[in-house]
């Protein structure tokens, strides 16, 4: 199965990358944008999707500072 994992900074932890993007948008005329975060996307083929949480916690994500989101199959099936 093709899987995608999003890894983002935990809520409450300063995200200077997200902030920088957020501050740049009004200068380009895009007002009304908030809560911007730059996240990491990991794509992988995995035989047993049930192992994905363990994969995330063992390696892909430092759960002290990051949280992960495993995208469901139906999301992946949607056309890009």
């Amino acid at each position: 199965m093709r899987a995608r994992v999003l890894i983002r900074p935990k809520a409450g932890i300063l995200d200077p990358q997200g902030q920088t993007v957020e501050r740049a948008l009004p200068a380009l005329g895009f007002g009304g944008v908030s809560r911007v975060h730059v996240v990491r996307l990991v794509e992988l083929d995995v035989e047993d999707p049930a192992t994905l949480p363990q994969i995330c916690e063992a390696l892909l994500c430092n759960t002290l500072i990051e949280e992960y989101e495993i995208l469901a199959e139906d999301v992946l099936a949607a056309p890009a």
Partner: peptide, 16 residues
């Protein structure tokens, strides 16, 4: 820190 031998974590510098 990653190995759990020290508490906490290191994040990107605020100045990027």
């Amino acid at each position: 820190c990653e190995a759990g031998l020290l508490p906490g974590a290191l994040l990107g510098n605020t100045g990027l």
